[in-house]
Amino acid sequence: MQDRQVILDTETTGLNAGSGDRIIEIGCVELVNRRVTGRTYHTYLNPEREIHPDATAVHGFTLEDLLDKPKFAQVVEEFHAFVAGAELVIHNAAFDIGFLEAEYKLLGKPGFMSETGCTRLDTLTLAKELHPGKRNNLDTLCERYGIPNTHRTLHGALLDARLLADVYLAMTRGQDALEIGVETASAAGGQAVDLRGLALAAWTPPAEDLAAHERYLDGLDKEVKGACVWRAEPAAPAA
């Protein structure tokens, strides 16, 4: 069974869905088995209300920019079909999901999460667990993990979703390790496999993967304020 995730971000007219603020942009990036598939969902929306100047300062949009865009009711089925059943990966998930729940409520629907059957993973919560006491906004995480974001002068839902996909994969890189051993096999009720006589083919990673690895190590160097353990010289064997 495929492990399908959707990285999701929204832009809004303000900060409070409960007081009537609305979504003006939705951006989604699909991951399957921790790989970016290239499938995305993106739309701008006419929020049918004014946009707070503080929000415009963040994403650059005024109501006049969006009057010719569809209303949420016009895109809900297409959006629903894209995210249905996925694990949603969102930075500060309560904010975006709160707005989506409010949009579904305005349409008389039972609720966004219940109707789509989605689950959620909050990367802000994950980042706080990994880096307690530090800033963990998206820009800071991009810098920490060596992900280029100099082209991000204003917030945009699809751009931010793409950046968050890179950040999420970097933060969780160790979670997809394959462990094969006696204890693992025993715990699973199987038998250990002896791989000592297996000849493994040598493989050289492509240049872009090596460059991404170096950027990741650069981020670790910043964390430890020096050279991380993976760049340390191995100790000389005892004589």
Rank of each mutant, 00 (worst) to 15 (best):
D54A: 08
E30I: 02
V89E: 10
G108I: 06
L106D: 07
V83Q: 14
K128C: 08
A81M: 02
F72T: 00
V36R: 11
T140W: 14
F61T: 00
A73Y: 01
V75T: 12
R120K: 02
L106K: 08
R39Y: 13
G117L: 10
I51S: 06
Q5H: 13
H91F: 06
L138F: 07
R39F: 07
T43A: 02
V58D: 10
G18W: 01
T125P: 00
T40I: 11
R39S: 15
T125R: 12
E48V: 04
D54S: 05
P132Y: 08
E143K: 13
G98L: 06
E11F: 04
L45M: 10
R144G: 15
Y44E: 08
R39E: 15
P110Q: 07
E48D: 13
N16L: 03
R4F: 11
V76R: 15
D54W: 01
T10E: 01
T140Q: 11
Q5F: 07
E50C: 02
L31H: 01
D9V: 07
E48R: 13
K105A: 13
V58S: 01
G38S: 09
L63A: 11
N137T: 02
A86R: 10
D21G: 03
L15T: 06
A81R: 14
K69W: 09
T40F: 11
E30R: 13
N16G: 00
D96E: 01
G133E: 05
N33P: 06
A127F: 03
L31T: 03
A17L: 01
P70C: 01
T40D: 09
A17Q: 14
R4S: 11
D9C: 10
A17M: 03
H52Q: 09
H52R: 05
A127G: 12
C28M: 03
D65L: 00
Q74C: 08
R39C: 07
L130F: 14
A127S: 14
G27N: 07
H91V: 03
R4K: 12
A55I: 01
H131P: 00
V75G: 10
E115Q: 13
H42R: 12
V29M: 10
L45K: 08
G108L: 11
E48M: 14
I24S: 04
N33C: 04
A102D: 13
G20P: 09
K71A: 02
V32A: 05
D96Q: 05
P110M: 05
T10V: 06
A127D: 06
G98K: 02
D3C: 00
H91I: 05
N16E: 15
I23W: 09
T125D: 09
E103I: 06
H52T: 00
K69C: 13
F95E: 10
G85K: 08
E115T: 11
E48I: 01
S114G: 14
G60P: 00
T37L: 12
T140I: 15
G18Y: 03
D139A: 01
R35N: 05
H42C: 08
L100H: 14
R35K: 12
H131S: 03
L8R: 06
E87M: 12
T13A: 04
R135I: 01
E25P: 02
L107K: 04
E115D: 13
E30N: 09
T13Y: 08
T125Y: 12
T119V: 00
D9Y: 13
S19Y: 00
A17G: 13
E129H: 00
T12W: 07
F95N: 03
D122R: 05
F61M: 11
G18E: 14
K128H: 15
L121H: 09
H91M: 04
F82D: 11
A93T: 09
N137E: 09
